[in-house]
């Protein structure tokens, strides 16, 4: 392990001053970590077991919040909506990102241009683009429904009908994430040695398809795993589009975990209850990361 202090190890006073220096350097970070991350997180976990409301004194109520969550149809709806959302956005945006990366890497022309085009959503103000999507998907004046009308189809009220709202939000989610995933896949693709692809050609892989299955897909394994996990974690944090476009409606049809947490905490001021939702959220994220590192990681890396 690289260690600049090896030479000084023998002499104790210098070692002490080095330790002191190190602590001074770490102090600001350590303090802010404790105050801004550690304590609040612990407080949030603790609050989940209280009935805290802003201005009142919290009372310990044990698992009462969680019992209420289980019984609350609104929360159950929110939970399942989030799962459906992630279940739509993750595979579609990963698939689209992979397809875009493959298309761009397949040739030399237009690489920089197309990469910029597809990456644009990542650096755009989410709130602003959500408003733009609202115009696009507007039932009467939106271009999407206007286009459908031209071919004789009556488009639904995408964002205000409970049947289609989740799908519409998921489509926006795919739009937001595809470019990000594309860039990650492009990095993974360039890491595949060129000679391996050439060997596949010489060995008899005529078409791009057979080369993909023989070389590209297996060697993208670690990247794919990474991208899937990242996308699931990113999409489970969906908030902006719901806050701007639907506010959870119509009738909780687009209610999602983080938005419920927000409304319970800051509209109804039930901070204890909101903290319980936060805890559920945290557990899910941790579980996702655990699955990535333990279960699948083993199978994907080659000895």
């Amino acid at each position: 392990m690289p260690d600049a202090s090896l030479a000084l190890r023998a002499r104790s006073p210098t070692r002490r001053s080095e330790a002191l220096g190190a602590w001074l350097l770490t102090l600001p970070a350590a303090l802010s970590f404790a105050l801004l991350l550690l304590l609040p997180t612990l407080a949030a976990i603790a609050l989940a077991f209280t009935d805290y409301e802003l201005g009142l004194i919290p009372v310990w109520i044990g698992l009462e919040n969680f019992r209420e969550l289980l019984a609350d149809r609104g929360f159950r709806r929110s939970f399942f909506n989030t799962i459906i959302y992630v279940g739509l956005v993750a595979p579609l945006s990963v698939g689209l990102g992979l397809a875009l990366a493959l298309l761009i890497e397949a040739g030399a022309r237009g690489r920089v241009f197309f990469r910029a085009v597809f990456f644009l959503p990542v650096v755009s103000l989410t709130v602003a683009m959500a408003a733009a999507w609202q115009y696009l998907l507007h039932p009467t004046i939106g271009p999407v429904n206007t286009l459908l009308r031209l071919i004789g189809v009556t488009g639904p009220a995408w964002l205000s009908s409970s049947d289609t709202v989740l799908i519409s939000l998921a489509a926006i989610g795919v739009w937001e994430n595809a470019g990000f995933n594309m860039v990650l896949f492009m990095a993974g693709l360039t890491a595949i040695p060129r000679e391996l692809r050439e060997a596949a050609c010489v060995d008899g892989a005529h078409s791009g398809w057979s080369r993909f299955w023989l070389v590209t897909w297996p060697l993208l394994g670690p990247t794919t795993l990474f991208v899937v996990t990242i996308t699931m974690i990113r999409s489970i944090r969906v908030f902006d589009t719901v806050a701007v476009l639907t506010r959870g409606g119509p009738n909780k049809a687009s209610e999602v975990l983080l938005y419920t947490m927000y409304t319970e905490g800051f509209t109804f001021m039930r901070l204890g209850y909101s903290a319980a939702i936060t805890l559920v959220f945290l557990v899910i994220v941790l579980a996702l990361m655990w699955v990535q590192t333990r279960v699948l990681d083993r199978r994907v890396h080659y000895g």
Binding site: A30, T41, A44, I233, F281, L286, M289
Partner: peptide, 30 residues
């Protein structure tokens, strides 16, 4: 680059911190 007592703990705390989404400490901070 530096050796000091507690270095492993600090790094462990950093790794743990990476797991926690920013929305979790939001409520108490507020």
């Amino acid at each position: 680059k530096l050796r000091f007592p507690g270095r492993e703990w600090v790094f462990g705390a950093v790794m743990l911190g990476l797991l926690v989404p920013p929305h979790v400490p939001a409520l108490p901070l507020y």
